[in-house]
Design a protein around this nucleic acid. Structure first.
Lengths: 167, 167
DNA sequence: AGTTGACCTGGAGTCCACTCCAGGTAGTAT
DNA sequence: ATACTACCTGGAGTGGACTCCAGGTCAACT
């Protein structure tokens, strides 16, 4: 099967311009042209582009993906390097996911803050009386709330975040 | 306790320039100045900035954070809106984490691809004999491998990704 | 023969989030 | 007194990833 740039764009959920930009940037050196100079994508090309989109998604910058693609062109000699690159990015991604999970926990704490404030019709329930400052023990109250509702799992992650400001 | 911009920058792990950029962008309207015109951050300011950094981390663009901060200045009247905003971003973040977990699963598949290729000293073990095209059944082989090594959890996520190219 | 519509190129423009000046002030250390 | 450092402003510059445009080719339809 052969596809035009428009078909591939649709399949991958990006614009035609984006694909041409990727080509310019050296991400698609394997794509052939027909007699009229138009790009013709094979099934295998699309398959390779899956991996490229995956790296994109993982936050790998375009020029690094380009080096990966370049390595691919060098054949078996570059297998080790490519494996190394993938491993590095896997660890980056894993770290990023953990980080986002902490961020999520903090966001949920803030959500609880507003849930309770909305219920009380005022934010002042969280303030030190007579000020606009948030009670220092509020994070602990939240943890108690989590414990009470049996959500122990997020507790550990959350304490990490809460401990930061004390540093 | 009061802090200078430099101290806060260090505490939050960003540069002084970045904090000034945030201020310019309307993220820090609550920060007061001393007689000499220098920014003076209170503990409470730093606490608020934690939330700002959290939203940053969650991928919320600066101007949206600015509207959140603006809402805060309007007091209790904006509680509902702020809660809504946080909830939206919580869902975005949750979706993003799921997406990254899928991406991770795909990356791990590729890692396995290279692990086995490196062990065989050639990538051709994964090709349709006589071509440079990856065997279509390779994803299934990987799933069998996952099952064999008892890693059933990632299997479901991974099939999602693998099914995409067939669309 | 003429009109679409999808494709092509080189290159300019945009958006975002910084990042880096130049030129100046204020407080401290020697 | 002078040197140093941390701070200030407005504004220019950067890098990344697109996004858009002018001007052109090609195949298909009417």
């Amino acid at each position: 099967m052969a596809y035009s740039i428009g078909q591939v764009a649709q399949k991958l959920g990006v614009t035609v311009d984006t694909l041409r930009y990727y080509d310019k940037s050296g991400l698609l050196p394997f794509v052939k042209r027909n007699a009229a100079g138009r790009r013709v994508f094979t099934d295998n090309d699309v398959h390779l582009m899956q991996t490229i989109m995956c790296l994109k998604n993982a936050g790998v910058p375009v020029n690094e993906i380009a080096t990966f693609v370049q390595l691919r062109l060098q054949g078996d000699a570059s297998l080790n390097e490519r494996y190394q690159l993938l491993t590095d990015h896997e660890q980056n991604l894993q770290a990023k996911i953990l980080d986002l999970q902490e961020t999520l926990a903090y966001l949920q704490y803030k959500k609880w803050y507003y849930e309770t404030a909305v219920a009380a019709n005022t934010e002042t329930i969280h303030f030190v009386p007579g000020t606009n400052e948030v009670k220092p023990e509020l994070a602990r109250e939240y943890q108690a709330h989590l414990k009470a509702t049996g959500q122990t799992e997020e507790l550990a992650m959350f304490t990490d975040v809460v401990d930061l400001p004390e540093a």
